[in-house]
Design a protein around this nucleic acid. Structure first.
Lengths: 251, 251
DNA sequence: CCCCAACTCTGTACGCCATACGGTGTAATA
DNA sequence: TATTACACCGTATGGCGTACAGAGTTGGGG
């Protein structure tokens, strides 16, 4: 069960994202700021994953009581929205990248791939109704700039960008999930397979899956688990950009 | 926070997947079977999502106490493994599809897309260390068969299949997340945007995001939320298959 | 200058969750 | 018939988000 973005009151969330809350005129000085809250939450999520990100945990890290967090943020959903916009600010435009649209899209894909590895919890937030903060808007803008003026229609520009971003997310997910499974179980992929394979062999008919056995073992030997996702990313990115090139060339 | 496949004891999980538990020789007749349990769990997850899939809920549906479920299954993780293998059995081989490798890969992509929409919870299970049941193995086998004998190396066959499957998952995720957000919030995408847009306009500089505004509104008008994910799927699939065609043609 | 409104912070409590543990009753075997 | 293996269940533990009510603090209005 993922967390969902865009689950809170739109108006309140937007005010948080853009930091337009007016300072309170009366009452005690606040101990915290939304900024500090979000920073602590991101640090916790980076370190221990989205499962470990609880309001109690953040409060402990900040030395306040759990409920006082609700002074700054209406709920966990809105907090996550702000976290998402914040880390998306780490992405960089492809404007200066030499090599044309292909190099620019490659930059965007690699940049996203790296971001998902720096903040793996991002993959476990279902980003629908994206938090329309400054960084989300800037991201969309410079993504489109990467494919502007190369003969695509507006709709195609949007579709091409979505395809590349979606691919980066999808392949990063494989990689991140594998790393998280290893960390959480304490069992490496190799050890898991070593425990699984002999039991499996006793269960299946030897000749039932000829292709799967041949290709599976070939892939397993050539790419050990540590680099396999990275290779899949490189391969897929190449094919997708080739496909986009076909489209552009047809114009 | 997703659920994870492959989180249980490999040996026990495999025995469940292949149904090789020997019948108990003594003791009371079991009220349930693993089959019935899995069927009920899938029905609950289909109807109300993975969040609503609790051991208590399944037990209620089946008329037993929560703890008795642990007689059949070591824990929730293993139950989900069996659920996954079960529903993957709904996928069909592309063997008889006319039109060569391209049509076969299209069939596989569409078949997966449809499966994810029939069982949206599948997207919220992080499938690492896949449950090596009969259906998972069969799936991999017939996926490879779709690209066998067209001039690709074993490693390329594996990579091409992974690319297409990953794309289908990725684009289905967008679609499913949108539908789930709508259902869980009771607010349609249009209504959400109608609440968001005016607040947003007051916050941002009018000329700050020229491309985003132009392309975003164009995409929003052309594809309403209901069909946008399906269009993105068709567009992306076309580009990816084009890219694969470039590879195959280079042989 | 004082009082009160506005505000921050906190303790407690509720209803969820998975599941560990120990006990109870049943059915087939020795 | 006695034993043993087993299914089933009640209770309890420690987690979660957050509703609610109260306590304490500050600045502005009279």
């Amino acid at each position: 069960m993922p967390e969902y973005s865009g689950a809170g009151d739109p108006k309140h969330t937007l005010e948080l994202l853009w930091g337009v809350r007016e300072r309170p005129r009366r009452g005690p000085r606040p101990k915290l700021t939304v900024e500090r809250l979000v920073t602590a939450a991101i640090a916790a999520a980076d370190a221990d994953g989205l499962n470990a990100l609880s309001m109690r945990r953040i409060a402990d890290d900040l030395g306040v009581s759990p409920m006082s967090i609700y002074t700054y943020v209406p709920g966990k959903a809105e907090l996550i929205d702000v976290m998402v916009d914040r880390v998306l600010g780490e992405l960089t435009p492809a404007d200066g990248v030499p090599g044309g649209w292909r190099a620019r899209l490659e930059h965007i894909a690699r940049d996203n791939w790296a971001l998902f590895h720096r903040h793996p919890w991002l993959l476990h937030v279902a980003i629908v109704r994206p938090p329309m903060g400054p960084n989300v808007l800037a991201k969309y803008e410079f993504e489109l700039r990467a494919v502007d003026g190369i003969g695509l229609t507006d709709l195609e520009m949007d579709a091409v960008v979505a395809l590349v971003i979606g691919f980066a997310e999808s392949s990063a997910r494989v990689s991140v999930n594998a790393a998280e499974a290893e960390r959480r179980s304490g069992i490496s992929d190799e050890a898991w397979w070593a425990a699984t394979a002999p039991v499996l062999e006793k269960l299946i008919d030897g000749a039932a899956y000829p292709l799967g056995e041949r290709v599976g073992t070939a892939a397993g030997q050539e790419y050990n688990a540590a680099v396999a996702p990275a290779r899949a990313f490189e391969f897929g990115l190449g094919r997708i950009l080739d496909g986009i090139e076909v489209l552009i060339a047809s114009r």
